[in-house]
Design a protein around this nucleic acid. Structure first.
Length: 943
RNA sequence: GCGCCGGUAGCUCAGUUGGCUAGAGCACACCCCUGAUAAGGGUGAGGUCGAAGGUUCGAUUCCUUUCCGGCGCACCA
C-alpha cells in the first residue's frame, strides 16, 4: 500500500462539470444580455406575466435631462431597481415608468450660452418676443431630447428594468396638459394668488434673471451712513433705561442709497447689544460691538457711549423716514450680523430677498417704487420721480446731507451682481409673481395646505429612515408661500391672460381650455397662437369664476412660465393617474435633498387637488462622498466615472456594491470598494458554480425526500431561513441585510460547511445513490432560491445561472418566476450539538498538525460524555446525526462514546481508500487489486 | 449661522428597551488541500466604541458641550 501501488480511480468519480464559467466577464457579457432582453421584450413579457396581478405602484422621480449620469444617479436608479425587481419576484405587477425633467434654466442657460458664443444673440434680440422664445425653445427641446436618450441608455446599461420604451418627460404635450389640470385644480381650491416679490432685475433687458444668469463683478458704489430719527424720545428712554435729552436716531448703513425711498423698516438682532452713543453732538443708536469701528469710519471726534440695551428692547420703536412722509418701525431679524454696517439694517421689502421675508413676517407691503425701466414711479417725493436709480444714488445722498440725516458717505467697492449678457448691474425689484399660498384655506375642507401637509407627514406617510419625518416637518413648518412663476422661455407657460387694465385673467375653466390645446399641440402653442385661439374652447358664460365684463377679444397672453418643480411635482397626476398606473404611489425613493424638492412639491399639489398624499412611503438615501468622507466634485477631482466603472467591473458588481451600502447617511465610494465588491461577487458566483457543477445529470422531477437528520436536511432548513430573511429584508427596503444574508449563506453555510461536507458523496457515491440524489435535490433548490433572491441585485448573473440550471435553455428568465415554495421545512434539534462538536474538532485538528496530522482525512474525531458538560445532552443528540458527522468535520470518521470530550485520533496507520482517500475502517484490498472502502467498492462495482 | 444625520478593529458595517471577555465580512499572518484550482478549507492577531464632562452600582448605548464630515435652509444690507 505504498503510493506506487495506489490505483487511479479519478475516472470513476463524478467530478464537477458545468458550462457556468468561473470568470464572469461582465463588461462583455452584460451588453449582450441586455440586447437579448430587449429582443425578447423582457419588460413587456414580465408585465404580461403579471397581468391582473396585484399592483405595486412605484414612481420614478425625474432626473434633469442634462449631462451623463453620475454615481449619484447610479445609486438612485439601482436602489429603485432593487425595489422593482424584488416586488416582481413577489408576484406583484410593477409598472415602472422612467421620467425626465426637461424644462428649466440649466438647459436654457446652456443653450443661451451657445447662442451667445455663436454670435447669434444680436439677431435673436431683433425677433418678436414669441418668435424669439420659440427659437430658444426649439434648441432647448432638442438638447433635452438628446440627453433623455443618452441617459436612458446609460440607465439601461445598469440593467435597470423599466418601461424605457414609454418614458415620461415633462415636456411631452400630454404631460404638460396634465400639469395644467393639476394647476386648474389648485386654482379651484383657492390657493393660487398673484402678488409682488423682489427678483433680480436686468434694467437693460427689462427682465427678471435667475441666479445662474448673474455674474458677480467688482463695482464701486456710494455707501452711506444715515440717521433715522426716532418718533418717541420717551420710548427710547424706556428702552435704554435712562434719561435722554434729545431724540436719538437709528443709524443704518447701505450701499444702495437708491433703495432708501422704499425703506419701511429697520431690522436689529434681538440678542445683540445696542448702544446709545453721542458723537459730535448727535445722538445715535448702533450695535455696541460695532460702535468703535463705526466711530472710526465716520471720523467722529467727540464720542461718548451713554447706555446699552438688548436689540429686543428696540423692537417696535417708531422712526420718521428722512424724506418720505411716513414712519417705520424697528423689527427683529436673526440674519443681522456684526460684520459690516451698524447692526441696524435698512429694510426695503420690495428690494431684497431677506427684506421681503421680513416684510411678510411683519405684515409690511412689498413696496417697490421702481418701474421696469429702472426709474421711480410717482409714489416717491417729487424730486425723485422719473429719475433712474443709478442717478438717484448721488441725489439721495445730497438730499440726506442737506437735511442733516447723512452721517457719512464714501466710495465703497464690493462684488455686485451683473446681467451676464448685457454686463450691466442688476437691481432687486419687486414684480408681480404667481404664488401657491400654504396658509390659505383649501376650499374642500377649510384647512390650509400647511396644515394638510403637516398632518400627512405626521399620520399618513411612512418615512425610511424614520428621521425623515422630523426633517420634513421642520421644512413644512417654516416654508414660505411657493413662488411658481419664472420669467423665462424654456418652460410650461402659466396660462394667465392680461386684461386691458393690467389685471390677470385665469380661472380653472380657462386653464382647462388651454390644457386641451396643449394636449394636442404642446405648450409651444402658447407662443404660436393668439389669446383668442388658445381660449377657443372656453365659454365665459358657463364659467362662474369669470370676472364681470370679461371681453376675450381684449386679452393678451402673459409671459410667465412655471417653476420646473411644479411640473415635476405634478407627476403623480401626469404619469400615475393619467396613465392609469394607480394612485397614490406606494413609494417615492430619492436623495434626502428631495425632502424640500420633489417630495414636498409633489405633496402640496396632490393635497390641494385630491386631499391625498401622493405617496405612502418616502425612502431617502444619502449622498456619495469620497473615501475620506468628502463630497464628490469635479473640482476636487474625486468624482468617479460611471462608464469607467461599468467597463472595469460591470453592472452586476456595481449593483452588488450598491446593495451592500447603508444608504441612509453619507455613502463612501471609492474604486477600491468596487474591487472588493468584485471579490465578494466572485465568492457568490463560485459557490453557485460549484452547486451547478454537481447537478450535471440530475433531473428535477418528483422531489427527493430530505430527512431532517441529514446534513441535507440541515442545509434545506438554512435555505428556507435565508429565503424568508431576504424576502423580509427586501420588503423592508433593507437591501444591505439581504446582501449580507446572501453573502454569508454562500460563504459560510454553503462554501465552508455544506459544499465541503458533501464533496465526498457527490464525487464518490454511485452516480444515482440515494444519498447523492438527496444532496443534489437540496443543491438544485439552493440554486433556484439563490437565483430568485439574487436577481434583484445581480440580474445578469442570476439569469446566467438560471439558464445553466435549466440546461442552457435560452430565453428563460428568473424575472418571470416567483419565489420557490419550499414548504414546511423541519429543523432537526441535533445540529446545534453537531456544530459545537465541529467547532471543537476544527480547533483540535489545528493543534494536531503539530503532531504531524496535517490532512484532516488522516484523522478521526471521538466525542465522549465530556461534551455534555459544555453542551448539555449533546452526546445523545449526536447519535441521530452520526451518519453525516464525519463529513461535517471533514475527517474520516467520528466515534461516539467514552468519557472524554472532543479529541482527535490518529488514523495514519489505517489503510487509505485509493478512491475517496478516506480511512473509514472499511478499507481493504478489492477484486480489482485496489484499496477501497465498502462504499467505493460498491460504487465502482467490485467485490 | 439654523435644522437634520453620521463619526465602533486597516477598510465596510452590526450592536434590540444601558449589564456576561464589544460582533461579522474583507484585508492581514500562519497553516492545510491540490478531485470547486486565475478556486477551496482551517486557525489567529487586530478596537481606551471621535473628544471632554455629567447621570448611574455600571454607558458604545442616556444628557450636555465640543471637534470632524454630509444634506437642506439662510446670508454677504
Amino acid at each position: 500500500m505504498t503510493e506506487s501501488t495506489a490505483r487511479d480511480y479519478r475516472s470513476t468519480l463524478n467530478l464537477p462539470k458545468t458550462g457556468f464559467a468561473m470568470k464572469a466577464n461582465l463588461a462583455q457579457a452584460e451588453p449582450q444580455t441586455l440586447k437579448a432582453w430587449k429582443e425578447r421584450g423582457q419588460f413587456e413579457s414580465i408585465m404580461a406575466a403579471r397581468d391582473g396581478a396585484e399592483p405595486f405602484v412605484f414612481h420614478d422621480g425625474p432626473p434633469y435631462a442634462n449631462g451623463n449620469i453620475h454615481v449619484g444617479h447610479m445609486l438612485n436608479k439601482v436602489l429603485k431597481d432593487l425595489v422593482v425587481r424584488s416586488r416582481i419576484l413577489e408576484g406583484k405587477r410593477v409598472h415602472y415608468v422612467p421620467g425626465w425633467d426637461c424644462h428649466g434654466l440649466p438647459i436654457e442657460h446652456k443653450v443661451m450660452t451657445e447662442i451667445v458664443k455663436g454670435g447669434k444673440a444680436e439677431k435673436l434680440e431683433t425677433l418678436a418676443p414669441d418668435v424669439r422664445r420659440m427659437a430658444i425653445r426649439r434648441e432647448c427641446a432638442a438638447y433635452a431630447e438628446k440627453f433623455i436618450k443618452l441617459q436612458g441608455e446609460e440607465m439601461q446599461r445598469l440593467l435597470t428594468l423599466a418601461d424605457y420604451a414609454h418614458p415620461y418627460a415633462t415636456m411631452q404635450p400630454a404631460y404638460e396638459a396634465a400639469t395644467l389640470e393639476v394647476f386648474a385644480g389648485m386654482v379651484e381650491q383657492g390657493v393660487v394668488y398673484r402678488d409682488l416679490k423682489p427678483v433680480h432685475w436686468s434694467i437693460a433687458n427689462r427682465t427678471a434673471l435667475a441666479e445662474a444668469e448673474l455674474e458677480y463683478e467688482e463695482r464701486q458704489d456710494l455707501s452711506v451712513y444715515v440717521d433715522f430719527e426716532l418718533e418717541d424720545r420717551e420710548a427710547a428712554e424706556r428702552a435704554f433705561g435712562c434719561e435722554i435729552d434729545q431724540t436719538p436716531c437709528l443709524m443704518i448703513w447701505t450701499t444702495t442709497p437708491w433703495t432708501l425711498p422704499a425703506n419701511l423698516a429697520i431690522a436689529c438682532h434681538p440678542r445683540y447689544r445696542y448702544a446709545l452713543v453721542e458723537h459730535d453732538g448727535a445722538l445715535s443708536i448702533v450695535a455696541a460691538e460695532l460702535w468703535p469701528k463705526v466711530a472710526a469710519t465716520i471720523k467722529a471726534e467727540k464720542v461718548r457711549m451713554l447706555a446699552e440695551c438688548d436689540g429686543a428692547a428696540l423692537v417696535g420703536l417708531g422712526y420718521r423716514h428722512p424724506f418720505c412722509a411716513r414712519s417705520g418701525r424697528v423689527v427683529a431679524a436673526e440674519y443681522v450680523t456684526l460684520e459690516d454696517g451698524t447692526g441696524l439694517v435698512h429694510t426695503a421689502p420690495g428690494h431684497g430677498a431677506e427684506d421681503y421675508r421680513t416684510g411678510l413676517k411683519e405684515g409690511l407691503p412689498t413696496y417697490c417704487p421702481v418701474r421696469d425701466d429702472g426709474t421711480y414711479d410717482d409714489t416717491v417725493p417729487e424730486w425723485l420721480r422719473g429719475l433712474s436709480v443709478w442717478d438717484a444714488n448721488a441725489k439721495v445722498t445730497e438730499h440726506l446731507r442737506d437735511s442733516g440725516h447723512l452721517v457719512f458717505d464714501h466710495a465703497f467697492t464690493h462684488s455686485y451682481p451683473h446681467d451676464w449678457r448685457s454686463k450691466t448691474p442688476v437691481i432687486f425689484r419687486a414684480t408681480e409673481q404667481w404664488f401657491i399660498g400654504v396658509d390659505r384655506p383649501v376650499k374642500r375642507d377649510g384647512r390650509t395646505l400647511r396644515q394638510l401637509a403637516l398632518d400627512a407627514v405626521e399620520h399618513r406617510v411612512r418615512f425610511v429612515p424614520d428621521w425623515g419625518r422630523n426633517r420634513m416637518r421642520g421644512m413644512l413648518e417654516n416654508r414660505p408661500d411657493w413662488c411658481i412663476s419664472r420669467q423665462r422661455s424654456w418652460g410650461l407657460p402659466i396660462p394667465a391672460f392680461l386684461q386691458p387694465d393690467g389685471s390677470a385673467f385665469m380661472t380653472a375653466a380657462s386653464i382647462r381650455a388651454v390644457a386641451a390645446v396643449f394636449a394636442q399641440k404642446g405648450s409651444d402653442a402658447w407662443f404660436q397662437l393668439s389669446a383668442q385661439e388658445l381660449l377657443a374652447g372656453y365659454d365665459a358664460s358657463k364659467d362662474a369664476d369669470a370676472p364681470a365684463g370679461l371681453d376675450l377679444t381684449t386679452l393678451t397672453k402673459g409671459s410667465d412660465i412655471f417653476d420646473v418643480w411644479f411640473e415635476a411635482g405634478s407627476s403623480w397626476h401626469s404619469v400615475l393617474r393619467t396613465r392609469g398606473i394607480g394612485f397614490p404611489s406606494e413609494l417615492y425613493l430619492e436623495g434626502s435633498d428631495q425632502h424640500r424638492g420633489w417630495f414636498q412639491l409633489s405633496l402640496l399639489p396632490a393635497l390641494a387637488v385630491t386631499g391625498e398624499p401622493p405617496f405612502r412611503t418616502l425612502l431617502t438615501h444619502g449622498f456619495m462622498v469620497d473615501k475620506d468622507g468628502l463630497k464628490m466634485s469635479k473640482s476636487l477631482g474625486n468624482a468617479l466615472d460611471v462608464a469607467a466603472l461599468l467597463k472595469d467591473y460591470g453592472a452586476d458588481v456595481a449593483r452588488w456594491w450598491v446593495s451592500s451600502v447603508p444608504y441612509d447617511g453619507d455613502i463612501k465610494i471609492d474604486l477600491e470598494y468596487f474591487r472588493l465588491a468584485g471579490e465578494s461577487y466572485r465568492k457568490v458566483r463560485n459557490t453557485i458554480r460549484f452547486l451547478l457543477s454537481n447537478l450535471e445529470g440530475f433531473v428535477p422531477g418528483a422531489r427527493v425526500p430530505v430527512e431532517p437528520a441529514s446534513i441535507d436536511g440541515w442545509a434545506l432548513a438554512e435555505l428556507a431561513t435565508l429565503q424568508s430573511t431576504v424576502r423580509a429584508a427586501y420588503a423592508a427596503y433593507d437591501f444591505r441585510a439581504a446582501h449580507v444574508a446572501i453573502f454569508d449563506f454562500c460563504n459560510e453555510t454553503l462554501s465552508a460547511i455544506y459544499c465541503a461536507a458533501t464533496k465526498d458523496r457527490l464525487y464518490c457515491d454511485a452516480r444515482d445513490a440515494a444519498r447523492r440524489r438527496r444532496t443534489q435535490q437540496v443543491m438544485h433548490d439552493a440554486v433556484t432560491v439563490l437565483c430568485q433572491l439574487l436577481v434583484p441585485i445581480l440580474p445578469h448573473t442570476a439569469d446566467e445561472a438560471w439558464s445553466a440550471l435549466h440546461g442552457g435553455a435560452p430565453g428563460s428568465s428568473v424575472m418571470a418566476t416567483t419565489h420557490l415554495d419550499l414548504g414546511q421545512v423541519a429543523r432537526h434539534g441535533a445540529w446545534d450539538a453537531a456544530f459545537a462538536v465541529r467547532e471543537r474538532a476544527l480547533k483540535a485538528l489545528e493543534s494536531a498538525k503539530a503532531s504531524g496530522i496535517e490532512n484532516p482525512l488522516d484523522a478521526g474525531v471521538s466525542v465522549g460524555r465530556g461534551i455534555d458538560a459544555e453542551v448539555p445532552g449533546a452526546l445523545d443528540a449526536l447519535a441521530s446525526v452520526h451518519a453525516d458527522l464525519a463529513d461535517l468535520c471533514g475527517v474520516s470518521r467520528v466515534t461516539l462514546g467514552g468519557d472524554g470530550g472532543v479529541s482527535i485520533t490518529d488514523l495514519r496507520n489505517e489503510p487509505r481508500c485509493d478512491r475517496s482517500w478516506r480511512r473509514d475502517g472499511t478499507v481493504r484490498q478489492r477484486s480489482d487489486g485496489g484499496m477501497l472502502s465498502d462504499r467505493d467498492a460498491a460504487a465502482v462495482g467490485v467485490a
